[in-house]
Design a protein around this nucleic acid. Structure first.
Lengths: 231, 231
DNA sequence: ACAAAAGTGTTCGACGTACACCCATGG
DNA sequence: CCATGGGTGTACGTCGAACACTTTTGT
């Protein structure tokens, strides 16, 4: 077989990206979910997605879709899985590459999201979703939990400056279990990957809690020592 | 937009699967690599792959390609990652979903593999590969290491009956470090996921080593107790 | 008898876990 | 002055890591 017929003989497929977009607000982990605009399943709840174009990589397609919906262009994003079952999309055979993204809810363009019919919902509020999107969310949660345990990705969900209580409640939300306050502080501070700021946050206590900021250089130093970030 | 044009307007892509096939033989981790038959890059070294057809899922495509090359139809297989860069295949725009597979080298159809120009090579023998296949192997090794630490997948690479020495040398090969014989035995035996057989293997010692067999039911019992397999 | 791999226990340090009280301050 | 969340230290048990000698048997 020559090269031309090798490629020409192969079938072509619609390829989509779907994004599981995590946020953290009011102490709760949330997902950005939208109402689908086209048939079939128009009006049903769906993840944010789009088709991969000729001139873009799948990663770029996911970044484009994310920016289109949130207005943010520097989102932490990881490929989750490629969902390739034949009948998964009831409108056509579509192979979908799912990405999960972590965003700081405060930073995103709320009106833009609203324009697209997108809503932030807590995990237990998620309605029935089209196609295999519920499975995607389930897989994304598992991936988030695995990933958050050994990589400093939790910080992507918090404001740049945050208190230890906020950080702890984020991990409590991710793992769905309460963490001991003293042990958590000991652990995270011993890793020495955050800068302690002079500022205090007084919004949630009279005394005020110190603000911290994740320091990528400190994290790099930790890696260089051969140590592993672990919560 | 109506449904017809929503799907019709989207571009279609060639979608391939590429398989990183691991085996374990003579105490070494090996990969099944083949020489490409078509242009461009004909004659160059490549992973085993093929195009996803209309009527099959990506998983099915990978299983088909694996059976086609090895003659085996019950191979342990995991999706690795979807590689979607625009220029990754120099012959055409091809989106590739990579899978890694673990097989018992002894069981596969050697002549069939040879017919396809496939060869088992040790990790340090792998020549330069086409496209992004070297990156795929690198990623697959990382995934194998991660996965082998918490899931009993090492057994997929060994014969049904194996000695503790074989098992240990497999893990030493995967992690590329020597493991203490006593600690390894203590750890793996404490998990109680293997059946100790009466038979002994005398091929590698005068004294003979007991053979063991992985027992999926014992592993399930471990899981039910909420414990985690960890090496 | 000897070579070659199989098999076996103990000690030590590190780390995870459990747990309760004082501090600072705004209202 | 008191309610609220912030901040702190210790004791115990578990588990991973290091480490060396005896057993068996084919040649």
């Amino acid at each position: 077989m020559n090269a031309a017929s090798f490629y020409a003989k192969a079938p072509k497929h619609l390829v989509a990206v779907d994004c599981i977009i995590f946020g953290f607000d009011e102490g709760r982990l949330k997902l950005l979910i939208m109402q689908r605009k086209v048939a079939p399943m128009a009006g049903e709840w769906s993840l944010v997605g789009g088709f991969v174009q000729e001139a873009e990589s799948t990663d770029e397609a996911a970044a484009r879709v994310l920016e289109h919906t949130t207005g943010l262009d520097d989102i932490y994003m990881n490929q989750l899985h490629c969902y390739g079952n034949v009948g998964r999309d009831t409108g056509a055979r579509v192979i979908s590459v799912a990405y999960y993204a972590l965003i700081r809810i405060k930073n995103h363009d709320k009106p833009l999201a609203r324009e697209h019919g997108a809503h932030w919902l807590e995990l237990h509020e998620i309605p029935e979703l089209i196609f295999d999107h519920a499975k995607m969310i389930e897989d994304a949660l598992a991936a988030l939990r695995n990933n958050a345990q050994f990589h400093p990705i939790g910080f992507e969900l918090l404001p740049e400056k945050f208190t230890l209580s906020q950080l702890r409640s984020l991990y409590e939300e991710i793992y769905q279990k309460t963490l001991d306050k003293r042990n958590f502080r000991k652990k995270i501070l011993s890793l020495d990957v955050m800068e302690k700021l002079e500022e205090k946050d007084k919004t949630s206590s009279k005394k005020g809690a110190h603000l911290y900021r994740f320091d990528p250089e400190k994290y790099e130093a930790l890696r260089r020592k051969g140590l592993v970030f672990e919560i």
